[in-house]
């Protein structure tokens, strides 16, 4: 577990919201989709921070907003890696260029993310060339070889084209490309979801070892809770654009507080064939973000919902005595539920 000595989080957001306008009908008032709404999140420097939730919960939008790739409607987002301190909402010009070097994205589908017309060497070198990070072709080549070696790519493969590689190898190429500009912050959006289990474990181990070697901070977006449980230090759970629970990983898996987190955990198919049908099933599906329920967004599917839940949205509160970790602002267990104490 690598919580760093400093208390300043790498990413700190307050009330961060991304709303997309919908085309209203002729007379109706303008409607918006609240892709993410009022997100307060602190990502400690050097951590492997997991973000989970169903599709449509806003995980990807949050990741994109932090990479300055989604328009922020409201709120603030601060990036501070000790060397630079940026306001991600207003950042532009040279600062934005510098931020692009420091923050990188690894995609989900290694088959779609790599250009079939470029050699592996050119794919990995592209960020260096676009951002003018190296002085000469030799320097570029050296940097490419170094990072390829770290990502356990065979150097003889650098001259080949991506079609010659398997899914796991391609994902290692994507990782090498993301790391070549020497970033501090990586958003990995479902980066192992398209891989077979036997390869998935390999890529996860690689990401973890690279994160400690290069002192990287990861925002690891995934719908797979067992993967998150094995790789992340901290986890945030999203539902319909809102954070419903955040906690250190062990704490979250040992004592989930929010009914949604509990439902997600129990929906994971157990490897024990005799465990069939014991799980607590969640009814229905995630509502449309263009027409979210009132009050607590989860109340339409929550088995414990009461009248108050449909009227009043619960804030994300701390104050859960975890007894496991030293209570520390960044690693506190927080939950957004009126009744978590009674469950």
């Amino acid at each position: 577990m690598s919580t760093t000595d400093t208390n300043t989080p790498l990413i700190n957001t307050r009330d961060l919201s991304v709303h997309y306008p919908l085309r209203g009908n002729l007379f109706g008032k303008k409607r918006v989709v609240r892709a993410i709404d009022g997100i307060d999140i602190q990502i400690p420097k050097g951590s492997f921070f997991g973000l989970v939730g169903e599709s449509g919960s806003g995980k990807t939008t949050l990741g994109r907003a932090l990479l300055k790739a989604a328009p922020v409607t409201r709120g603030t987002a601060q990036y501070n890696d000790g060397e630079v301190d940026y306001n991600l909402v207003s950042i532009d010009g040279d600062d934005l260029k510098e931020y692009r070097k420091r923050a990188q994205l690894i995609f989900q589908d290694p088959y779609a993310a790599l250009s079939p017309r470029l050699t592996v060497r050119d794919i990995i070198a592209e960020p260096l060339e676009v951002m003018n990070l190296t002085g000469s072709r030799d320097e570029t080549d050296e940097r490419v070889r170094e990072i390829a070696k770290r990502c356990r790519l065979n150097l003889e493969h650098l001259r080949r084209y991506p079609h010659a590689f398997s899914g796991g190898q391609r994902q290692r190429i994507s990782i090498a490309r993301a790391l070549v500009s020497n970033p501090r912050f990586i958003v990995a959006d479902e980066s192992v979801a398209a891989l077979d289990v036997s390869i998935q474990a390999d890529v996860l181990n690689l990401l973890r070892s690279l994160s400690s070697e290069f002192e990287l901070t990861f925002l690891f977006i995934s719908h797979d809770l067992s993967v998150v449980a094995h790789t992340c230090d901290q986890v945030a759970v999203m539902y319909l654009g809102r954070l419903v629970e955040t906690a250190p990983t062990r704490e979250l898996f040992a004592s989930p507080k929010h009914p949604y987190t509990r439902a997600l955990l129990s929906a994971i198919p157990s490897l024990d064939p005799d465990d069939r049908g014991r799980a607590q099933k969640l009814e229905g599906e995630i509502p449309s973000p263009s027409n979210p329920p009132s009050g607590c967004k989860f109340h339409t599917r929550c088995p414990h919902a009461q009248k108050r839940c449909s009227e009043e949205e619960p804030p994300l509160v701390s104050g859960i005595d975890n007894g496991v970790n030293q209570v520390h602002d960044l690693t506190e267990h927080k939950v957004a539920c009126h009744f978590w104490r009674d469950l």
């Binding site: 474990a201 449980a229 094995h230 062990r250 490897l271």
Partner: peptide, 24 residues
Amino acid sequence: QGLLQALPRLDDLDAPLSPVPGDI
């Protein structure tokens, strides 16, 4: 056996993930 060991398990968060070595 390799497939089962490569699976991230919720009952043992400390167990290392051991991939099946190599590629298909």
